[in-house]
């Protein structure tokens, strides 16, 4: 037994850690997720007029509370992207896709989400994309199934 140990047999155990968190939202994220359920995307306007998407409760540059929530997009521009050749189980898509930063029309910051195109050659920085909504929306970031190239744009 101890010889087997010395020979390098190491015991292993599979362990799964799960937390079934339910998170309360507060007024800003509540409005954002309610908007997603209703297929609109909201940003928060800072005191100096910039629009943050996803909306933040406070302007990260000044610490001041943000003001009105304004509707943005739904289309926008890819500002950076990463092509996932082999999706992981934790990813929302099971085929190759891009993680992308999308600056929605009317926003000054970019939303991190996914873009689906046929292959990597279909991706480029600056491309125009629009959300593809799930059939059933329930008020979560995954209500946007992914972004896809904007209809009618070459």
């Amino acid at each position: 037994m101890t010889d087997a140990n010395a020979a390098g047999e190491i015991l292993t155990a599979q362990h799964v850690m799960e937390y079934p968190y339910r998170r309360s939202l507060g007024p800003v994220l509540s409005a954002f997720f309610t908007g997603l359920r209703d297929r609109t995307i909201l940003g928060a306007r800072t005191r100096d007029g910039r629009v943050l998407v996803p909306p933040a409760e406070y302007d990260p540059e000044t610490g001041e509370a943000t003001g009105d929530l304004v509707e943005v997009g739904p289309a926008g521009t890819v500002t950076s992207w990463a092509w996932v050749h082999e999706p992981r189980d934790v990813h929302p898509l099971d085929r190759p896709f891009a993680f992308a930063l999308v600056r929605l029309d009317g926003a000054d910051s970019a939303l991190l989400h996914t873009v689906v195109v046929d292959d990597k050659a279909g991706m480029r920085t600056g491309m125009r994309v629009e959300p593809r909504w799930r059939d059933e929306t329930e008020g979560r970031i995954q209500d946007i199934e992914c972004f896809v190239p904007e209809a009618g744009v070459a």
Binding site: L25, H91, P92, I141
Partner: peptide, 9 residues
Amino acid sequence: YTLAPLGPD
């Protein structure tokens, strides 16, 4: 809320 559910490793 907005990032982790998408699984950006």
